[in-house]
Amino acid sequence: MVSIAPQPPISNELVLTESRTMRAQTIERTDALAKVKALAMLPDNLHVTTEMAAAYYEVDTQAIHSLVRRNRDELEQNGMHTLQGAELRAFKVETGGQGDHLFNGARSLRLFTRRALLNVGQLLTESQVARQVREYLLNVEQVVRNDVAPRQLAQAKRLPPKTFRQVYFSDVPEGRFFQHLYTHGYLLDQRYQRKDEFGNLTKHGFRHGHPKAGKGDRLFMLPEVMHVDANGRLRGRAVVRPDRAEELVEQLISEGLRHNPSISRAPGRLALTTSSVVDGHQVEMRRGA
């Protein structure tokens, strides 16, 4: 009988290098970059070059080039792009003044958005900085998971919309997600409807973010505990009704919002699956209604 030596366990942070689903689930957390290390951007404050990406992760540029060759499609989906010709000339003027000294006369220029730069850190195995980025992402993801009961979503805490988005729709930018809730009749939009002490409309209305009558209050509710402000008014923001979470997810998907890859859907059933490492083995954990 031939015995097979057990494989060494995969460290937790390497789950992100192995699982595209987990990368998609944490890709919005671009704040991780600045949390781990000071981040230098181009003058537009939106992009970094290949050289700047290599400097951030403390590797040589060849490591970034190799990573791009292996993962081009995913990186481009997350904002990596290459400028040439007229686009490059215009970009040089916008970010580097009249000369092209900033890019050393480059005839093409690969740029990474923050999201693409984070994607590099999710994939790059030969960088200690990338490892710290992955550890930060997984720690934050664990906090989000702990907001959801481990088995039955119907028994979960009443999720605030921000946490609900992180769990189910993290590919959708937060601003767009809330705008969808406002314009589709879920929550009241009272942004900048109250005047400050100078008479400018800079404050939100007292009922901003409350469930809207009809469609909204069927799926959202006010929290059980609300606080009293300085004027004696009860204040609180909407939370998702725990027994309506599945219905809300299905409805938002039908309205065009892109759900997380971690959501599996079957007739009459919606569940959340996450990938984790247990005793050195990568396993899928399923939660759902």
Rank of each mutant, 00 (worst) to 15 (best):
M1E: 10
S3Q: 14
S3T: 13
A5M: 10
A5L: 09
Q7Y: 14
Q7D: 15
Q7P: 09
P8Y: 03
L14Q: 11
T17P: 01
T17W: 03
S19D: 03
S19E: 00
T21N: 09
T30M: 05
K35T: 12
A38Q: 14
N45C: 02
H47A: 04
T50V: 06
E51R: 14
A55S: 08
Y56M: 00
D60L: 09
V68H: 09
R69C: 05
D73G: 03
D73M: 03
E74S: 06
E76V: 11
G79M: 04
V93N: 11
E94G: 12
N104S: 13
L124Q: 05
T125Q: 12
T125M: 12
S127H: 12
A130V: 02
Q132W: 02
Q132A: 08
Q132Y: 03
E135W: 00
L137K: 02
L138G: 02
E141Q: 08
Q142H: 08
Q142C: 07
V144S: 01
D147Q: 15
D147N: 13
R151L: 03
Q155N: 11
K162V: 14
V167I: 03
V172T: 10
E174K: 09
K195A: 13
D196E: 09
T202V: 08
K203V: 12
H204G: 06
H204R: 08
G209E: 08
G214V: 04
D217R: 05
L219V: 13
L219T: 08
F220D: 05
L222Y: 06
E224M: 10
V228Q: 07
D229T: 01
N231H: 14
N231R: 12
R235F: 01
V239M: 11
R241T: 02
A245G: 06
A245Y: 02
I253L: 12
R258K: 15
S262K: 02
S264P: 01
T273G: 00
G280L: 01
R287E: 04
A289N: 11
